[in-house]
Design a protein around this nucleic acid. Structure first.
Lengths: 136, 136
DNA sequence: TGCAATCTCTATTAAATCGATAGGAATAAT
DNA sequence: ATTATTCCTATCGATTTAATAGAGATTGCA
């Protein structure tokens, strides 16, 4: 299951992207319109800022804004930051590879074989979707 | 991430399938060879039996055996039993649909749009793989 | 200058889930 | 009978998730 963190993060990015301009959007506004706990959303937006998707402005009339154009924000990158590895098992992860300790031979592992296919097909979806695509 | 339950369940099914004959295979043998906690595996095989993938024989020389041919066991079915819904959000689940309570309109929801694609591509992988395929 | 609005940061908590374990009951083979 | 096995229920510890609390820092504006 997708975590609420990821779900809310995507919704917030979409919300900001749909505004179109570069004015800072406030947490409170997003939280209210997307029915998200404001405090929880705070921490998510902080993560998105620290990983380079959002910029922020403090103080009155502050808020968050997109640093890049929606068409340049790939779902692969967003998902990796919010949800973590795209692969369902670490032994097929491209960016977070780790050997399974219970599995002596990946080549003969049926789970490995299946999960490589799932990884590739999911990756393909994320590579072909930008923030602009899903915000339409 | 794939749960260990699913991972172990798939490994156990594969182990039994690779034996080729219809002799009951004992939990202990599978646990030992696949490096799985025997007690944990017990509960997993029980689940697989109750959902119609395995048959069992009690007592001495008992064990588990496949009820259908590996080529007739679809990954879609196995995954749904072991891991649950294939969709990452319930609002795009075919078999376990549930409306998101925070989302007033699915048609305009960016998460919905993205997750439908993920669901379809994952489903496609599972539909095209049987136990026979992954056991090769 | 001071107040109000806003993001920043750390810490905490409640609930849920996961992986594993324990122990006995039932059943079958010898 | 004895032994080997599955069956069933209950429980536990660790981890993760979602949410909350509260104080701090910064900015705009009157």
């Amino acid at each position: 299951m997708l975590s609420k963190k990821t779900k809310y993060g995507l919704k917030a990015l979409t919300y900001i992207a749909r505004k179109g301009n570069n004015e800072p959007v406030q947490i409170g506004e997003i939280a209210k319109n997307e029915h998200i706990s404001q405090k929880f959303l705070e921490s998510i937006l902080l993560t998105l800022r620290k990983s380079g998707f959002l910029g922020s402005k403090k103080g009155k009339h502050g808020g968050y804004y997109l640093i890049k154009k929606p068409s340049e924000i790939l779902m692969t990158d967003v998902m990796r930051v919010l949800e973590g590895p795209i692969a369902l098992v670490s032994c097929v992860s491209l960016n977070f590879y780790e050997k399974c300790d219970d599995c002596p031979d990946e080549a003969s592992c049926s789970v490995h074989k299946l999960m490589i296919q799932v990884r590739d097909s999911t990756l393909n979806v994320f590579k072909n979707n930008t923030l602009e695509d899903i915000s339409k």
